[in-house]
């Protein structure tokens, strides 16, 4: 479904990605793990068109999207839920969701808002509250809900459990598992490697802009290097 081949991305002369190749098949949940500054967010931004690769190819369902603009990419069916949630703090929950569906016909957006509030009843109770006044967990639900509003076929999640209390982390992973059971394809970046590898089908390890390991999640979980660096055993 998604295929990155030899992708390079640079910020000025900082070479953040140095030729990475990643594949996400339809219906798969693929985790991308790595330490701080490894280039995980950069990878996701390149996929969603916020950053332009200096070399390499990004294909979505056989179509080259490495030069496409973000709105086109969203329209094709990729939705990127960014690191740090980034909800529109001065807009209400309803307005945040409404804008999540900006690429969709307005008539369908209303029923989609109901689907999202069924998934996250907490949001349904807070439709007129400003995004910026939600708790961290509620903001993360809103960010995921907003990303789902474009009816993506590929959902990209950048550290959805970041800064959340354990209960809320559990809740977020329940949602991710639900979405997976519903057949949604996902690419997940997580610091919470335990959880990520529990939910994922396959995983990639990114270090300093290079993919150093890849494989089925349960194999990687028993890999000594992964155990040592990311699982703290």
């Amino acid at each position: 479904m998604l295929e990155l081949t030899g992708v390079h991305v640079a910020y000025g002369n900082i070479r953040a990605l140095q030729g990475i190749s990643i594949r996400v098949g339809a219906g798969e949940l693929v985790a991308l793990i790595g330490s701080n500054g490894a280039g995980k967010s950069t990878t996701l931004k390149a996929i969603s068109g916020l950053l332009r690769p200096s070399a390499g190819r990004i294909e979505f369902e056989g179509r080259d999207i490495s030069r496409a603009s973000t709105d086109v990419i969203v329209g094709l069916g990729i939705s990127h839920c960014p690191e740090g949630r980034r909800v529109f703090g001065r807009l209400t929950v309803r307005e945040n969701l409404l804008l999540g569906g900006i690429t969709r016909p307005i008539a369908e957006v209303r029923s989609d808002i109901e689907r999202v509030t069924t998934l996250f009843p907490r949001l349904g109770e807070r439709m007129t509250q400003l995004g910026g006044t939600l708790s961290g967990g509620e903001q993360q639900m809103l960010a995921i809900g907003r990303a789902l509003m474009s009816r993506p076929r590929l959902l990209i999640l950048d550290e959805p459990s970041l800064g959340l209390a354990p209960m809320m982390v559990e809740r977020i992973f329940e949602v991710i598992d639900d979405l997976k059971r519903g057949g949604l394809t996902m690419l997940l970046v997580e610091q919470n490697v335990h959880h990520a590898l529990d939910s994922a089908d396959r995983a990639y390890v990114l270090e300093s802009g290079l993919i150093t390991l890849e494989g089925p999640a349960d194999v990687l979980r028993r890999n000594p290097q992964v155990e040592h660096s990311y699982l703290g055993r």
Binding site: D71, L99, G100, I102, M149, S150
Partner: peptide, 16 residues
């Protein structure tokens, strides 16, 4: 409003 609030986030939801 969204673009004023957070330009990259506005881009990510597909706002042109």
């Amino acid at each position: 409003h969204a673009a004023a609030d957070d330009l990259p986030a506005a881009q990510l939801v597909g706002i042109r």
